[in-house]
Amino acid sequence: MLIRHFHENDWPAVWAILREVVGARETIPYDPAMSESQGRSVWAEAPPGRVVVAVTAEGTVVGTAKMGPNRSGPGAHVSTATFLVAADHRGRGVGTALCRHALDWARRDGYAAMQFNAVVETNRSAVELYRRLGFDVVGTVPRAFEHPTLGRVGLHVMYHEFA
């Protein structure tokens, strides 16, 4: 698997993954009714941020990540990232590779930390992955996410300060 910069011709595949993940309403707090243009504006990350895709040896886009500063101004030293993996490629290391890539990018670009603002607490595979890679849950907003089968569940704020 290769992780590379997003190219415009990747958008149809990225949009399909974004639509799939958001439409499931289980792991990411984006509006499932978003249009393609809204999805593009949500996923497009302007510099100093970036968007990458995870591509199989056959050239299939199976995941994507966007990363950048978590806030502007005095908070710009903390980065953030969001990851999406196609359903048929989950559990194969795509999310791990994307997260490691984002952490390497953030360190290389001089960020002091990475913060995730809204990790759905029932997304156990993501929470476990982030913990393995050095993140801690620094707080949970109770009942802040409407899960389609579990009802209202919490959103974790997760943080990884770089040494």
Rank of each mutant, 00 (worst) to 15 (best):
R19A: 11
M34I: 09
P48D: 10
S41Y: 06
T140R: 14
G73H: 04
Y111Q: 06
V52K: 06
P142W: 05
D10T: 05
G59S: 01
S125Q: 02
V138W: 15
E161V: 13
I3T: 11
L103W: 12
A33Y: 09
G134A: 04
D88H: 15
E36K: 14
V94A: 06
N9K: 10
R152K: 11
W15Q: 08
E58N: 05
H89K: 02
W11P: 09
L18V: 12
S79I: 00
A87S: 14
H156F: 13
D88V: 13
G93V: 05
A24C: 10
R40Y: 15
S37A: 15
A126R: 05
Y111I: 02
G49N: 07
T64M: 13
T56Q: 00
A113K: 11
A126W: 06
K66I: 07
I3H: 04
G139H: 12
A118H: 08
H77W: 10
W43Y: 14
M114R: 08
V137F: 09
T64Q: 01
Y130R: 02
H5M: 12
G59N: 11
A81K: 02
T60K: 10
W43C: 07
G151D: 06
V120Q: 09
A46W: 02
Y130V: 04
T80I: 02
H147F: 08
V22H: 09
T96P: 03
V157N: 12
R40C: 03
V61Y: 06
A33G: 13
D10P: 04
G154E: 04
T80Q: 08
S125E: 07
E128W: 03
A106N: 00
I28G: 07
P148L: 05
P48N: 00
R131E: 08
P69C: 04
R25K: 15
D136V: 10
E58D: 13
R92M: 13
H5C: 11
G95Y: 12
G23V: 12
F6L: 15
V157D: 11
M34H: 11
Y130P: 01
D104I: 13
E36S: 07
E121N: 05
V21H: 06
E26K: 12
L133E: 11
R108S: 14
D10A: 03
T56K: 04
L150A: 12
S72M: 10
E45D: 10
A46D: 11
W43L: 09
